[in-house]
Design a protein around this nucleic acid. Structure first.
Lengths: 189, 189
DNA sequence: TTTGCACTGAAACGGTCGTTTCAGCGAAGG
DNA sequence: CCTTCGCTGAAACGACCGTTTCAGTGCAAA
């Protein structure tokens, strides 16, 4: 019988981890079971058995990427003033080791916009929510207005898109810092 | 024989236009020739004949979307001060009639990050370049530094991503205006 | 020892994909 | 009239897709 796609299982988590490493390098859009299965040393049969369907696997991979992002973010949660904290968030984003994760994120985000049904559905909206929450904690209780957080999030996301396309760390980092300076400046003006 | 995919032709442009309307509504990622051909009242045979290959068609569609964006942008090119001008750019982006175009743009952008080869290749980098140029004209000759433009572009792109996911025009618009106020404020401080 | 369960291999199924083959159409130009 | 050229229809090709069927493993508990 087909295993419940939510059932925890040692083998399932092991294969999920391997598959996750695979899609980080190869992307999710063009993913198909046979090459993936071969790359992780398994078979389509087993992937289907453990994840119920390809959509189930995609959903699990998307969830995996989301929780990794949030976990890493929580571990790197900065202290200090708002501008300093957001600056550290950007440093975290811009780190070259994060490129694959961000590319995968962008892929899921775009796909969830085009295909609201299916396994991608809601990924974009959920991500906005996640980050607004993170910024709510980081920016402190004195900036509870989500519109402030939205502005900061926009800068980070836009700069991230630019960075992914151009790989120009210096220009994008400078742009973020410029906006942050304005942000702190507005508090003192 | 197969027609050169670059050859201009009345029928080619007519079908390109119809196909463009189609992908605006259905997305590019899941596009396949048979459904598309049927929707535009043609056949896969003809599409292949006129565009050389599916990749050729995708490339033409991507180019079509880029030129439309740039043309509309040029037509709506605002005058007035920097902040006012960028505000009008955002109004243009946030207009509900632009949603499909922006969604398609996001799709192409993400795909070009994952698959640098193939028809999408360079789309993201080219788009950054395009918009930096636009902002260069809009923000006037007194702000020639591309790092300023990068910051403004980041705000617009990030807010756009947010808008596409949440459809929250008020929150995103407010965020953009908040950044713009800071931007003009920095000139007067 | 037997039963059940988690997992696996091999092969096939029906379907869709991009592309090709072959065969034409109708109008324009010699 | 006849040829050429741009365009088209029907059908097939081989490849790959997600998924299913059938037939097992080996191990743990009863």
């Amino acid at each position: 019988m087909t295993a419940d796609s939510q059932a925890p299982s040692a083998r399932r988590e092991e294969l999920l981890e391997l598959a996750y490493r695979y899609v980080l390098r190869h992307g999710l859009a063009g993913m198909s079971l046979r090459p993936l299965a071969e790359a992780v040393g398994s078979s389509p049969r087993v992937l289907l058995y453990l994840f119920g369907s390809k959509d189930g696997l995609v959903q699990a991979l998307l969830a995996r990427s989301r929780t990794e992002e949030l976990d890493l973010l929580a571990a790197a949660r900065p202290d200090g003033g708002p501008a300093v904290a957001v600056g550290r968030l950007w440093d975290w984003l811009a780190d070259s080791s994060r490129r694959d994760l961000l590319r995968l994120w962008t892929e899921g985000y775009a796909r969830s916009l085009v295909e609201p049904d299916g396994p991608w559905g809601g990924f974009a909206a959920r991500s906005v929510e996640d980050w607004l929450d993170v910024l709510g904690e980081v920016l402190g209780p004195d900036r509870v207005d989500r519109k402030d957080h939205t502005a900061v999030l926009a800068v980070l996301r836009g700069a991230m898109l630019d960075l992914l396309a151009t790989d120009d760390v210096e220009r994008t980092t400078d742009a973020v810092h410029r906006q942050l300076a304005l942000l702190t400046g507005s508090a003192t003006c």
